[in-house]
Design a protein around this nucleic acid. Structure first.
Lengths: 210, 210, 210, 210
DNA sequence: TATGAATGAGCGTTCATTCAT
DNA sequence: GATGAATGAACGCTCATTCAT
């Protein structure tokens, strides 16, 4: 009994995994709004009704898929967050990781780029975690003296906004070269601001030349 | 006759306006995907079929709503873009304007914050224009010597990403104080980078130590 | 009062006529199923609602149009029927008239070719009259000794069937040459049967050559 | 599994058949334009959406119904066409078969009698085939020396026109006796012309007078 | 547990008809 | 009488969800 229960759970996990893969594939091919229970079931080689044995409803299923899809990405980023690099390099590394993931898993792009709210559960699920993650990086950066003290949650938001545009760029089908350029500009902006010679700097230069 | 024709056009304009308002309200309440002809009609106090007296189809209606909703906002921003301020102040002013509009017209938030991807007409209509606008501001900033030469389209994208987060913040129902703080942090980031002790500051430090 | 009543009736007749023309034009351009009250009104330069001042409903309107459209055609045929020609020449002349009318008034084609029942009122209206007309021609032919006695209503039906195919041919957009050929074959069939050497004839030929 | 798959196909076939019957019944009762997915579904004891489990869309459904309804009729006629009878007897037999089928399947009448023009798929499907069939019978008749050479496509058209009137007669609810009479007259016309004293008879008269 | 047919509410759209002006 | 906006039922079609097997 105990054994068969374990086996059952195992089988269930396998099924959920299969459904997750199918859903990811559908997501990639048809976009968020193209994900129908029918397509997911067919792709998973299941009957439509069977999906409901594993997930309460479509939203739950999408939530699961979303988690599973984004999980390794988040873990990679969390690892970066916990590394001993200075904040600026963490952010750069996060960018590289984002680029890499969105290249490897096209589905993640549609998920993150397409879902700007829509209620889609999905967004409600990924956003806060992403924000927490980034915030902690900025917090840590302050602790380490890499960053001057400031409202980290807002910086995190800002960075997330810029990151979303990276996904957007990918979703638009831009070349990876262009995406790389964008990432470069972003990193530069993180370090130096949005490409602006500030008066402060200008006057500093004058002082120097004087 | 002449008079009645004018009156007719006036009434039609009023109706379109009422429908626009209804659609805006539906948009605000149910999100882009929740905008149904039925809901719009009901909200406007009309029968569904009546909408088709004013708009060819749903897309046309949404297009109209989008224009109407976003147009004054865009015009305000375009005006800022054409002013003689330095780029950084333009961006700051755009931020303030965005704050103000998203405060006044809650619907605009869902439009701009929510619509990532999808065919949605809306997106096709607003995004490129916004990007062109921002790009031209950065271009001008370079010409004026306020900015160092760089890939302006990417910077525009980045700034738009940050702006989307501002709308997002408003959509989440944050206090205007919080939104203001975010705007402040964003402006600071534009000028000085993402709160990072940069070389610039480093050189300042050198001066100090000197 | 008397006068104004007459004038009123006159005006009404004019309006009905204008509507008839508009409907005919719509019929010609969009086919029976493409006749909407909206299109008729617009074409007639009227408001949709005004149509209902002259016709109870769409069916009544179509009935009127149908009558008006087909009337001169029927009158021409009736005249042929009352002429002193032998039956075969009457039928040939009817064919020629049909060709001519369907050439001149494309609308009549769509009316007669498209409406094979559909309940369409139209059919219920034209068919019996057409059949009566043809029947009387065949009856007269028998009286005149041109035709052998037989069930004329059936012959009329038959001829009408062949005539419908002529309209069909026109409606398909065939060249008038082809329509003419068809008419020729039909006349030949009327006179000699459907191109068949009957055994009777064959044996008669043999007898002759013997 | 094998068995269940076969059973499934069987059940599907049964359902399609039931839908076919329902559609036929709707066709008979409401005419071609009265065939609604809703009516078909209700008549078949199904929900509207269920139809789409068996047919891609309305056109496909109508196509299926049309084929199913007309197929045995066409096959019977094709068999007649390929038999070794002289052309006149083939035509007579086709008439008898038509009578029989239109008696047994009232729906076929509306299909064949009603559908003149319109895109209706149905028409595109049945008419050309019918015409080809008849044309080939006439062609063959010429080859066999039963008919004198002539434009067979036109004769086919003519005959089809007469046949349509037979269906019309049935659709009007005439007694089968009357339909039989019509068929007789038609056959006579095929052989001897439309009840006209032709040259043929004239020559017979000459013989007599000789 | 797996199935997939059945469901039914919902979608965007059309159009004959009504009615306040 | 003329108007044309408003109506609302109907259309073909989609799809998340249910349920008998």
């Amino acid at each position: 009994m105990r054994l068969s229960k374990a086996r059952k759970e195992f089988v269930t996990a396998m099924m959920k995994d299969a459904i997750y893969k199918a859903a990811g594939s559908v997501l990639q091919e048809h976009g968020v709004n193209g994900v129908t229970m029918d397509r997911v079931a067919t792709t998973a080689g299941l009957a439509k009704g069977s999906l409901y044995n594993y997930f309460e409803d479509k939203d739950t299923l999408l939530g699961f898929v979303c988690d599973r899809l984004v999980e390794p990405f988040f873990e990679a980023i969390e690892e970066i967050g916990q590394s001993e690099l200075p904040a600026s390099q963490k952010l750069a590394k996060i960018l590289r990781t984002s680029l890499q993931y969105s290249d490897e898993h096209k589905a993640i792009i549609r998920l993150l780029a397409e879902t700007r709210r829509e209620q889609h559960e999905i967004r409600r699920r990924t956003r806060p975690r992403f924000l927490r993650l980034l915030t902690s990086i900025f917090d840590r950066g302050i602790l380490d003296g890499d960053l001057r003290p400031h409202d980290t949650i807002h910086t995190a938001r800002m960075f997330l906004g810029c990151l979303s545009e990276l996904f957007e760029l990918q979703a638009e089908g831009s070349s990876s070269e262009e995406a790389n350029q964008y990432a470069g500009v972003l990193i530069d902006a993180v370090l130096n601001g949005f490409s602006i010679h500030t008066k402060k700097q200008a006057s500093t230069d004058e002082e120097r030349s004087a």
